[in-house]
Write a protein that binds this DNA or RNA. Structure first.
Lengths: 342, 342
DNA sequence: TGAAAGTGGGACAAAAAATGTCCATACTAA
DNA sequence: TTAGTATGGACATTTTTTGTCCCACTTTCA
């Protein structure tokens, strides 16, 4: 029914659907940046001042935007409309359809797509984060939830978008892997703690490098502080994780030249939990890591894989082929690339 | 979901729904009158030539209209779009909602509303007819269908819109009442025969006046030709009938001055099957008629009451209060009037 | 406290689009 | 053949849109 309406509207009033999208973009951007000035907004959206002004005046008349001396911001009803709009935008842009096609093609459990391309527009990353949070909350158990999370830029924005559960279901966050690379912001530990903070929930940290020798591992595992956390990780029923590009991850991990060569020789394109995949989704290399192992994902209730941007399309394709149990949260850019090229 | 979309669109691109409706009207009119010239079309729709031209050019570019030297007509995809549009238009105009409210308010089985007001725009009558036919066909039994129909202008346009059943379910049409008044076109017999013709179905006629004295009735009922038809009428499971305004009907029936006075004294507003109703839906007068009696409606599987136009709102209200078992097919004009005033 | 940067709103000319109107020409039906 | 009706082209005029400045005001930071 709704498909029908949109299809008809595309035929009969196509330009108005375009302005719908423009105005959606404006509201969307204002929500992120409010209060924001007219000129700043115009340049950010790539519109001339006058054009934007017309739109803003219109939206002000509709009571969706409030414009004051400190800038433009959303009104109450603006927020409401934007939220509703958010839900139907998928249909309007035909994204829902793309999502269904992707589910079929990749054979994964569910695909969620947000509009835009995070390679091109910075705020799309936030939307991906928001969508991932929504998916996570939709799958919380009423009683006990141990949620394992990984690191990375994408996961950092998932954490930034976390908010307390309205139904106050208990959550405990644990890192799914050990420390990896240098940047503090991208550590699983950091993401874990920030996410828990924003959710007003517990968390535990894993103070151990991701890659360790067998002996070190066996010794450290006896440490109570580590042992406990590892047990919690094993008990997790929900995992939220990013998908890495093989090369990037190898560099971040400061891999040895031999490793890098191996990755190159096997044409690895994706990385997750220390496993490297080639374009066909086959495991071509494996780094012994602490934390969740790939095989364990099959026993999880919910595995949410989050990754966006056209550049990550290949990595997503490779990983998804190997792991059908995931809920994939991505963006339009990656999704369409994935559908057309892989 | 679709409500949500429409609600959001009303807020964010109010023009969208307006121009959608304009273009819908154009397509709609073209379907009825094709091929039609640009100027004729413009004056019919109350638009200036230039305005209409812009719209037609647009619709031509979209491939929905074909414009040739003999005039403007619908293309194949124009017909398809219009059909889809027809289905969603109810939602867009908020008619579906009105219909549901009316069902509640009148307490009838179902209400179907077509856009427009047949008092103001002549083609709305046709749409009502089309809608009634759709309802009728949706309720045909697979095996045997005896359908009783009355006369009147509204019923005449139902007959005009009848078409053969695609599933070829057998239908037999009979008049629900005898002959009444002078105009041949509006006789139940005429409607019955035309409807059957257009449906490629059987029919039987009832050659007897609607109003007769008891003795005449008893004598004529012995006539085999009449007796058979009356038996078929008793066996009918489906009735399609119009709703009359009391005064109009009394005049058409050439009522005696006493009758007219009685109608006026009791403030009768509606008529059906020889029964007169006041505004409260009470029976205030009854003419002894041949054919279906009001009480018999309760035993019918399907009773489709058809009436449109703001002027008939009161009659519809009165009749519907008394007869909750009906499926009411009407138009926007009558429906909104009914909802606001009665 | 003062200045700098950022804000909305007003104003206005230039450009573009929409509109009303007429006319020429082509086709159709009688 | 003719009368009538059709479209498409043309064009001046009106209306709307658009790009650009400037001004007064507020906030913020030094």
């Amino acid at each position: 029914m709704i498909q029908q309406l949109i299809h008809v509207q595309k035929q009969i009033v196509p330009d108005l659907l375009d302005t719908l999208r423009h105005r959606y973009d404006i509201l969307h951007y204002v929500r992120l940046m409010q209060p924001i000035g007219r000129r700043t907004l115009a340049t950010s959206l790539g519109l001339t001042e006058r054009i934007l002004r017309r739109e803003v005046d219109f939206l002000k008349d509709q009571g969706l935007l409030a414009v004051a001396t400190q800038g433009i911001s959303l009104t109450e009803s603006g927020r409401n409309v934007l939220r509703d709009l958010h839900e139907v935008m998928g249909e309007i842009l035909g994204i829902s359809e793309v999502a269904r096609e992707l589910e079929q093609k990749l054979g994964v459990r569910q695909v969620v797509i947000v509009p835009g391309d995070s390679d091109e527009t910075f705020w799309v990353q936030r939307d991906i984060g928001r969508a991932a949070v929504t998916q996570l909350k939709a799958r919380l158990a009423p009683d006990d939830n141990i949620i394992a999370v990984t690191g990375g830029t994408t996961m950092a924005s998932v954490a930034a978008m976390m908010s307390p559960d309205k139904k106050e279901r208990p959550m405990h966050f644990v890192p799914a892997r050990g420390g990896l690379g240098e940047t503090l912001e991208l550590q699983a530990n950091t993401v874990c703690s920030r996410m828990a903070d924003r959710a007003h929930a517990d968390y535990h940290l894993l103070h151990i490098p991701d890659e360790v020798s067998q002996e070190t591992f066996e010794r450290m595992v006896e440490e109570p502080s580590i042992k406990n956390v590892l047990e919690m990780i094993r008990a997790a029923r929900i995992v939220v994780h990013g998908i890495g590009e093989a090369e990037t991850m190898a560099k971040r991990r400061r891999a040895t030249p031999e490793h890098l060569q191996m990755i190159e020789r096997h044409e690895a394109v994706a990385e997750a939990f220390g496993y490297y995949f080639n374009a066909e989704g086959e495991i071509v290399h494996r780094v012994k890591t602490v934390g969740i192992q790939l095989e364990e994902l099959d026993n999880m209730d919910t595995v949410i894989a989050v990754a966006g941007g056209k550049s990550k399309a290949q990595a997503i394709a490779a990983y998804a082929k190997h792991t059908p149990n995931i809920i994939l949260v991505t963006d339009e850019g990656a999704a369409t690339e994935l559908l057309t090229c892989y």
